[in-house]
Each structure stands twice: as structure tokens, then as C-alpha cells.
């Protein structure tokens, strides 16, 4: 009896501690949001919402704080990373989940996971030393090697582990009965993967991609190192629209990190407004990921 009540007290205490930790993390998130927003109020008031969001001239010396160029920069580099990274990540996930023998899995999976542990600044160095010189060789006037392309490639590698592991989980969660059903109908292994397994795991795969997007939007250091950090609105360098990606740019994250150390007054407040915009973008992205994950887990299966 005594022993039992002792265990019950321990049980209660653990519950209590867990509850406090959960509450605490919510409070921290809210506190950060509140703090960033509070610091940005001056900018919203004095410069105006549309002047910040929809103007693309960023000239702190002349009190011009339009961040549209950075919004476009962040979105362009994210799209670039998705276009380059998603096929690679999905291919890796399919290979790991459906094709690779156990031994190969045991080598490849930790290798992919290791990519997630490499510090961002190392990716930046790799981009500067390897990618930028290669891209510089593309013979287009005004191409310095630094810019959206270099940033997109670096980012594509950085989001690879996130997307790969979530997509692989989604693929593994597809019941085997679907695979045998398909193979028994005379489908090939590849048809089974593309027509049954991937569609059945679709929601989870999309959730993985969206979480990759969230990660891409938030990346800072590696971006500063390879994107060129130009405040000008990114534009194609020639008549060929693809040279847009050779243009230098700046991300929302980069804007804050590059200038915050010396900014004061309204300039500083405008950087916090940049942070609010980034925060809002990431909340939207994460909420949609959650929506897809929920859909995935509510898909009924024939497992009874």
C-alpha cells in the first residue's frame, strides 16, 4: 500500500513536470513572437505596412525600408532548393524504403542523416569554395558566381535529410498488403512504387517537402555566404529568363543577420518587421505541413 502510493506520487510528479515543460515551451514561443512584434511596431507605424511589404527599395540611409526584394529572394531560393532537392530526396527515400538491401540501407541512412548534422557555416564554405567558382564559369555578363543558383544548390543539400527521412517514413507506413495486391495483379515493382506506394504515402511525402520548405526559409548563415546579399531586386542578367538564378539576392534571414549589429532606431525596427514577415511565412508553412500529416494518419487502411 505504502509502496503503491509512493509510485503514484512519482507518477503525479512526472506528469506535473511534463505539463510545466509543455506550457513553458508555449510561453517561450509566444514570448519570442511578442518581443519581435513589439520591436517592429515602430516600423509598421512610421513606414507603413504596404511600404514595407510591397516596396523593393531598401536604403536605410534614406529611410526606405521595402523588403519585397528579400521576400522574393527567400521565395526564389526556396523554390530553387525544392526543384533541385525534392527529386533527389524522393529518389533517396524510395531507394531506402523500397529497393536498397538492408546492408546498403545501414550505410546510406546514417550518411544522409549526417548531412543534417553538418553546421550551416560549413555548407556556406563549401558553396563559396566549390560551387561559386564553378558557377562563375557560366559565361553570362554580370555573373559573379554568387547568387540564387549557388544558394539554391547549397540549400537543396541542406533540406535533403529532412525530406528524405519524412518521405521514407511515409513510404514505410504504406501497408504491405497494397504492395502484394499490386504485384499479384501483374504490376512491376516500379509500377507498384509509382502507382500505389507513392500515392498512398502522398500526404506524408508532401508534409516532408513542406517541412523542408520551412527549413529552407529559415536558413541564414549559408545563404549569407553564397547569395551575394545584394539589396537589389533580383533580375535575369540577360534576355534569357533562366539567368534570374545567376542574379545576386538577399534573403529575409540574411537581411536581419547582416545589418542588425549596427542598426538603430527605425532601421532596427524595420529589421524586426522583416523578422515578423519571416515568422508569418514559417507559421503558414508549418501549419500546412501539419494539415498534411493529419490527413496522412487519418487515411483508413484495410488492416483490421
Amino acid at each position: 500500500m505504502k509502496e503503491k502510493s509512493g509510485r503514484m506520487i512519482a507518477d503525479q510528479t512526472v506528469k506535473y513536470i511534463l505539463f510545466i515543460s509543455a506550457i513553458l515551451s508555449i510561453i517561450i514561443v509566444l514570448a519570442i513572437a511578442y518581443f519581435i512584434f513589439r520591436e517592429s511596431i515602430q516600423a509598421w507605424k512610421e513606414i507603413g505596412f504596404t511600404n514595407i511589404i510591397l516596396k523593393s527599395v531598401w536604403r536605410p540611409g534614406q529611410d526606405q525600408y521595402g523588403i519585397l526584394a528579400m521576400i522574393v529572394g527567400s521565395i526564389a531560393v526556396t523554390i530553387g532548393a525544392i526543384v533541385l532537392g525534392v527529386p533527389l530526396a524522393l529518389g533517396t527515400a524510395i531507394f531506402l524504403g523500397e529497393i536498397a538491401p538492408k546492408g546498403v540501407q545501414a550505410l546510406l541512412r546514417p550518411a544522409v542523416q549526417l548531412l543534417a548534422g553538418i553546421p550551416s557555416v560549413v555548407y556556406g564554405l563549401f558553396g563559396m569554395v566549390v560551387l561559386v567558382p564553378i558557377i562563375r564559369r557560366i559565361n553570362v555578363p554580370g555573373n559573379s558566381g554568387y547568387g540564387l543558383l549557388a544558394a539554391s544548390i547549397v540549400l537543396a543539400v541542406m533540406i535533403l535529410p529532412t525530406i528524405t527521412s519524412i518521405a521514407e517514413d511515409a513510404i514505410r507506413a504504406v501497408p504491405d498488403s497494397y504492395r502484394s495486391g499490386s504485384l499479384a495483379l501483374g504490376a512491376t515493382k516500379w509500377q507498384t512504387i509509382t502507382k500505389v506506394v507513392l500515392p498512398a504515402g502522398r500526404s506524408g511525402i508532401i508534409a516532408g517537402i513542406i517541412l523542408g520548405v520551412g527549413r529552407a526559409l529559415g536558413e541564414t548563415m549559408a545563404m549569407i555566404m553564397v547569395i551575394g546579399n545584394s539589396v537589389k531586386f533580383p533580375k535575369p542578367l540577360t534576355a534569357n529568363p533562366l539567368t534570374f538564378y545567376l542574379s545576386k539576392a538577399r534573403t529575409l534571414t540574411g537581411n536581419i543577420a547582416v545589418e542588425i549589429s549596427y542598426a538603430t532606431g527605425i532601421h532596427e525596427s524595420a529589421l524586426f518587421a522583416t523578422g515578423v514577415v519571416l515568422f508569418a511565412l514559417i507559421i503558414i508553412v508549418n501549419a500546412s505541413a501539419r494539415w498534411f500529416i493529419k490527413r496522412q494518419s487519418s487515411i483508413p487502411t484495410t488492416r483490421q
Partner: peptide
């Protein structure tokens, strides 16, 4: 080709989603 000639029905119904 063989499996197109020999169909199979499983113990638990397994329609695709």
C-alpha cells in the same frame, strides 16, 4: 506475365486507397 494469368485474392481484403 504469370501473375496476369493467375489472379490472387488475399485473406484480408486489400483494395487500394
Amino acid at each position: 506475365a504469370l501473375r496476369q494469368n493467375i489472379g490472387m485474392v488475399f485473406q484480408k481484403p486489400n483494395p487500394f486507397p
